[in-house]
Design a protein around this nucleic acid. Sequence first.
DNA 1: AGGTAAACGAGACGGTACGTCGCGTCTTTCA
DNA 2: TGAAAGACGCGACGTACCGTCTCGTTTACCT
Lengths: 199, 199, 199, 199
Amino acid sequence: MSKAESSQPLKKSVGRPKSLASRNAILGAARDLLDEVGPHKLTIDGVAKRAGVGKPTIYRTWANAQELAMAALVERVEVGAAADTSLKVHTIEDLVESIIVRLNTKRGRQVALMLASGEPDGELFKAFANRVILQGRQEGLNLLQHMQARGEIRADVDLSMSLDMIFGALMLRLLLRHEGLDPTLARGSLAIIMDGVKV
Amino acid sequence: MSKAESSQPLKKSVGRPKSLASRNAILGAARDLLDEVGPHKLTIDGVAKRAGVGKPTIYRTWANAQELAMAALVERVEVGAAADTSLKVHTIEDLVESIIVRLNTKRGRQVALMLASGEPDGELFKAFANRVILQGRQEGLNLLQHMQARGEIRADVDLSMSLDMIFGALMLRLLLRHEGLDPTLARGSLAIIMDGVKV
Amino acid sequence: MSKAESSQPLKKSVGRPKSLASRNAILGAARDLLDEVGPHKLTIDGVAKRAGVGKPTIYRTWANAQELAMAALVERVEVGAAADTSLKVHTIEDLVESIIVRLNTKRGRQVALMLASGEPDGELFKAFANRVILQGRQEGLNLLQHMQARGEIRADVDLSMSLDMIFGALMLRLLLRHEGLDPTLARGSLAIIMDGVKV
Amino acid sequence: MSKAESSQPLKKSVGRPKSLASRNAILGAARDLLDEVGPHKLTIDGVAKRAGVGKPTIYRTWANAQELAMAALVERVEVGAAADTSLKVHTIEDLVESIIVRLNTKRGRQVALMLASGEPDGELFKAFANRVILQGRQEGLNLLQHMQARGEIRADVDLSMSLDMIFGALMLRLLLRHEGLDPTLARGSLAIIMDGVKV
DNA sequence: AGGTAAACGAGACGGTACGTCGCGTCTTTCA
DNA sequence: TGAAAGACGCGACGTACCGTCTCGTTTACCT
């Protein structure tokens, strides 16, 4: 039932079109507030005031604060990703390392909160998960499949589970903070996956 | 700043002591409401009314709804754990399997939400994480250390990371639901860890 | 600091205008509750529930229960006064008699309580005092001034004090109930004022 | 139903007697708080904390904050009166003047509030009114009766009403602040009463 | 060029919940 | 055994946001 991000209707709209300036102001304000007060305290009232916009203008596009937060985070992630296209990721190790770097920020925890608090069967939730997490996982899956095709990984291995173990370990440390989380861990976790732990 | 769960003071307290009956009623009501309406909608007003208790009585012990929710979940987990002592867990595989079973419930997501939304540096958060997650992880760590001592695992392996990969994969699937999560996965994830994926 | 009763701004207000229906419902509920439970027990919660209105809607116009009570009483007094225009008051005796009648009711004590408990330097307090008490006093002052002009009262008499003595006696008996308060007293008190007590 | 001010029981009390020190501390704290925060904000909690006393100790003697406030004011008035015995009051003019001085203080308004907000038929209310107001009025009544007996006042004059007019005028100005209230008014109001206003 | 329809800012609306304060009562422990 | 300390059930406080609803105004498209 979400109103957000529906695919553009082909029928020409009548009346005054939505203001792109307002949209940008709203997402910008949301982004700022996410950093300043955190996702719990992100309120529609606050965003409206900060963006210099009426509340109905926000509700016309997003159904509630959570959707707005997701939209703001997605946009930020995509902007970041666009900036990253320069540095090519060729190996699974590079990929994991870059994921750690991106996760290990304030924004990383914001994303994690969205994932944990959202309704996992909702339309928007899936879209969000896809864009901010599963996309990276898919990249990794492609890389592993190539390795499997090249005979570097056994044919019977559950690649999906392997990836979830790598990414999951990062997520766990992000959430619990019981152990550090730094880019050098990429090599360690991959070593475990590749070689196993048996003698 | 949390008032909850302060370590037991040795000095005899003066004045009327806190009512254990009230405490139980509050935690019971919180537990029920967590299941019925979910963690987002758990309100102090609701708990107070349901428990037949005044709001200040709740605030005297817990600073906000989140702390109360954590306390209710901790208690539930501990009661569950106490009931489980009968079935002995001898192998790492048994452990992971039982964790999956426990995670893969409504309560599992509730716990995950707490972990994702709490302030990770807060006192209560750490206590919560310790009791509901890291305790199981510690059990696993003990098992793996025994295996390492017996020469079944190489001496240079980062056991901590290995465990985070196993537990993290479960957590990831719990949150994202992009793949199923059932007890048979215990064997699969352990196989990857033990043998690695290389040819 | 009061928000109530600010003088009408000439500038067109922006945004949704305040609902007159709500205002009336609130004042009506307050009026009813003043009679039913008394001024001490007049609560904003109670008025809101009775009026079918949210609490913030009340606070948007009145700062606290006292201001609301004053507003409700003022309105009632004015409605009563409007109804009274039919019966003309020509003499000071008629005036005092009608004041006694109006004072000597449940509402009379409510008004007295407001006067005694309000901050006498507050804006709203002054407005209240003006409308419910001093207006009647001013009428009396006019009558006495006419008498003075016609030579029926000595030129050197402090008319203001004279009126305060008449009205004050009524107020005192209303508050203390140490002596009865009935309309026949109008004649008596005026006699004292007019003729003095000396032999 | 008031428990306050019951005459000291003659029967020997059993067990530990009520602490006079506590009583004094309570009344002192109440007196201080009456001045500092006003009668509206005088709370039992506040008095208990300030007096270093448990709340039940207060409730054992006074039924609620209003009774306590009255008790504190009565005591203060009586202490003040005791101090005044030195200066003899021989004429009605002296009396009115001294009343104005005493009324025209913070405490004067506190007393007025008590009178306006109390239940006028309550036992305690009557006692309070008697001690702080009607006693002065009675003194005045005695003086006027002497004057009447000496033939200085006509025999048919309603002395009670005359006094209420004098005192009421003061009360009115105290409450409404529409006109000043200073000791020189004693002479003026008495002049009106004595001589009347007619030519 | 004018009409019209939608989006806009502003902000009030009925609500729900917040976290606090104070009530008057109760249950301990201490002196 | 009275008094301090303080927790209790209760109810109201005044505030923050929710998501919706009028307002009057602006801005584009479509006659």
